[in-house]
Computed example of a mutant assay.
Amino acid sequence: MEDKKALIYDCAKELFSAKGFKDTNISEITKKAGMAVGTFYNYYPSKEKLFMDIFLEENAKLKQACFQSLDLDQNPLAVVGQMLKLNVEGTKANPILREWYNRSVFEKLEQVYREENGVDTVDFLYDSFLELITLWQKQGKMRKDIDSKMIMMIFAAIINVDTHKEEIGLEYFPELLLLMTELIMKSLMDCSEY
């Protein structure tokens, strides 16, 4: 059974990458996988759910690759800025991840994302960043008056602003995230009064 699910996943990923979310349908996915449409529903409740599973895996791979290529000897602002820059470049280069900014499909995707609590898929980065923040605090590079876990929640809030891009205006993303993060990081690095 897992082989069929993996085949559906792989075929869908190929089609979504080539044609996008909107122009790919379930019958094309199952035809490519060599199975009946009804079989699809044994493994996925909807095209949106399948796409979100693929999206979240691609997003996690990108975040992990970005983190692994960071120069952690830089100051916190440079490290976080580098992470965001690498993430933006990786998102633009990946046709699956680019769909997050496709005005005609993101509302459906965001709804599934919220329902699935997709931020959990990048939890593997939480421990790494938490250790880094704790180190920066010990080194005097980041404020110590704010608990390191609270700082992680600030970062989570930055990430979740992305799910409100329509309300804010798509034309401002991802530049808004870069500027907002820079301002927050400068505040977190201002250790002079703390």
Results as ranks from 00 to 15, higher is better:
Thr91Trp: 05
Lys186Ser: 09
Tyr9Gly: 00
Phe67Gln: 07
Glu171His: 12
Asp3Ser: 09
Lys5Ala: 10
Ala33Asp: 05
Tyr101Met: 10
Thr39Asn: 00
Tyr194Arg: 05
Pro76Asp: 03
Ser192Lys: 14
Gln64Thr: 13
Val79Met: 08
Val80Ala: 07
Pro76Thr: 03
Asp127Glu: 15
Val88Glu: 09
Thr24Leu: 07
Ser17Phe: 06
Ala12Tyr: 04
Met150Ile: 15
Glu58His: 12
Ser187Ala: 15
Leu130Pro: 02
Leu70Glu: 05
Ile54Pro: 01
Met153Phe: 10
Ala18Asp: 13
Ala93Phe: 04
Leu179Gln: 13
Ser46Asn: 04
Leu135Tyr: 12
Phe21Cys: 02
Phe40Pro: 00
Ala36Glu: 08
Lys31Gly: 04
Met52His: 03
Leu177Val: 11
Asp23Ala: 11
Ile146Met: 11
Leu176Arg: 07
Ala18Gln: 15
Ile8Asp: 00
Cys11Trp: 01
Met150Phe: 10
Leu183Gln: 15
Ser46Pro: 01
Ser69Ala: 11
Gly34Leu: 01
Asn94Gly: 05
Glu193Ser: 14
Tyr101Trp: 08
Ile96Lys: 03
Ile158Ala: 09
Phe16Thr: 04
Ser104Cys: 01
Asn102Leu: 01
Glu2Val: 10
Ile184Arg: 06
Arg98Asp: 06
Val79Leu: 06
Ile29Glu: 03
Thr121Glu: 12
Ile158Phe: 07
Ser27Ala: 11
